[in-house]
Amino acid sequence: MFAAAAAALLVAMAMALVRAVAGPTVYDRILAVNAIGTKTLLMIAVVGFLTRRPEFLDIALVYALINFIGTVAVTKFVKHRHLGHPANLNGEGEL
């Protein structure tokens, strides 16, 4: 059962990768990379159970946090075109 779940996750990861490569807009790519990150942490959890080492779950939790921080940084960059204070408060970032 876990093997089937792992295969399904791989397929989902491949489809998200296609979207990340093809684009066409910035938001497609952000969402695709975020989805790949989510699939990664699910994959770690599933592999943990597949190899009978469920203690990998803690690592999956840390991955979730890293993924969240990365997505926040990316969306902040797209909105403000700067990672520190916004360079232009009125206009949205253009890419």
């Binding site: 990861m13 998200a16 990340a20 684009g23 910035v26 990379v33 990664t40 770690i44 990998f56 840390v62």
Partner: peptide, 30 residues
């Protein structure tokens, strides 16, 4: 598009991290 390249490099790292976990190198994956 350099933004797309940055995003894809991030996804490359995520998949590499998954590979390290599968290979049992959990600290490297971290």
């Amino acid at each position: 598009n350099l933004f797309a390249v940055a995003m894809l490099a991030g996804s490359y790292s995520l998949m590499a991290a998954t590979l390290y976990v599968v290979l049992d190198a959990v600290d490297v994956a971290f």
